[in-house]
Design a protein around this nucleic acid. Sequence first.
DNA 1: ATGCATGAGGG
DNA 2: CCTCATGCATA
Length: 386
Amino acid sequence: MYSPDKMMGSKGPTGLHGPITTTGACFPGRYSPTYRSPEPMGRRCMPNPSNFSFRGLHLRPHRILEDASIMCNSWSPKYNGDLFSGLNDGLISRAEALAAVDIKHQGSGGPAGLPQLKHDMMYHHSMGAPPPVSRPQMGHMDGLEMLDPISTSSMTTLTPMSETPTHMHSYGMNHVMNHHHHHGGPLSGHGGPGHHPGHHTGHPGPHHPAMAAAAAAVAGLHPDADTDPRELEAFAERFKQRRIKLGVTQADVGKALANLKLPGVGALSQSTICRFESLTLSHNNMIALKPILQAWLEEAEAQAKNKRRDPDAPSVLPAGEKKRKRTSIAAPEKRSLEAYFAVQPRPSGEKIAAIAEKLDLKKNVVRVWFCNQRQKQKRMKFAAQH
DNA sequence: ATGCATGAGGG
DNA sequence: CCTCATGCATA
C-alpha cells in the first residue's frame, strides 16, 4: 500500500551550525525548465546524470527524533516581543511543547512502529482517525488558535518514431487533474481535503475503491482499474522492477519519455520518476503518469528485445548556469515549524511573517515550508487510508 | 530519496 | 495567497 514510510527525511549536517544555510548563488527564475503549459514542452532536462542511488530497496534509515529539548529552542535573540500581536514566545513555546509531548507519546522511540507517522498522526483532525493529539486548549492564544480553518543506460534513445498505438491514452498529463482543490472531483478519492467544514466523517465517500469507481463512473470516467490505489501500487512496483531489469535509471526514464513523442508528454525528472515508484506523488498525479510510464515501459522492452542500440548524441552541458540555492532549515527551527503546523496548518500571512521573524528565517521560506508541509500531509493522509 | 522551490492556474 | 505538479540540489 501507499506506505508513507518515508515522508520525513534527513536533516542536513548543516543543522548544527545555523538556522539556515544555503549553497549556491541566488538567481531569479529565469531558466525555469518547468512548464506546465497544456502543450508539450521542449523542456530540456539536462540534469546531473549521477544522481541516483538505488541499492536494493528502502533501506533508508529513518530519522529518529532528536531529543533536543524543544523547550530549549533558541529563539532569535533579536525578537522583541510585540511586533506581532498574537504571537509571543510563551504561546509558541507552549505550542511546541504540546507538539513535542504528542510526538513523544506517539512512540517515536519505537523503531518498529511507523516512524513516518510521527507527524501526520498529529494532524488528523479532519479524519476519522483517532487524533491522539489534544487540541491545545490554551484558552487565549489570540493569534494561533482563533482562525484555524477548522476550528547508463542504453535506453536513452527511444526511437522517435515509434508510437506503440497500443492503448496509451494521450491526454495532456499536465492538466488532467482538476484545479478545484477543494472537491474530490471525479478523479476519485484524492484524499479528502482536510478542510471540509462538514465533511464525510460519518458517511462513505469515495474512500473505497468501489466507491471511487462508482463515483468515477458517474462522472463519466472509466472505473477503477486506473484509479485504484491497489493497481497503482502494483504497477509502480512492477515498473521499477522492469526498469531495473532493463538497466535504466530513473533519470533515463525521465528523459526518454520525451522520445515517446506522446502528445503533451515531455521529459520528466529523476525526482518524479522516483516519486512515482515510491508512490510519493498525489493520487491524481499517479493516475496521470501511469499510462505514460506504461507506454514507455512497453516501448523500452520492445526495443530491448530487438537489441538495437544506437549511439546518442553526447549531450553538451551548457556550462555556466546559475544554480538555484537551496535553503536548509536547521533541526530546531524545523521542530518549531512542525509545532506550529500541528496547531495551525494554514497560518495567515501575518502569522507566517511573525513565525519567520522568530525563527529568523525568510518569510517566503516559511510560507513555502507550510505549503510543502500541506502537500506532504495530504499524501500521507491518503496513503494512511489505503 | 527527499527538502526546499518555482510557476501555472484559480480565487 | 493557495494548491498541485514538478524540478534542482543535496544528503
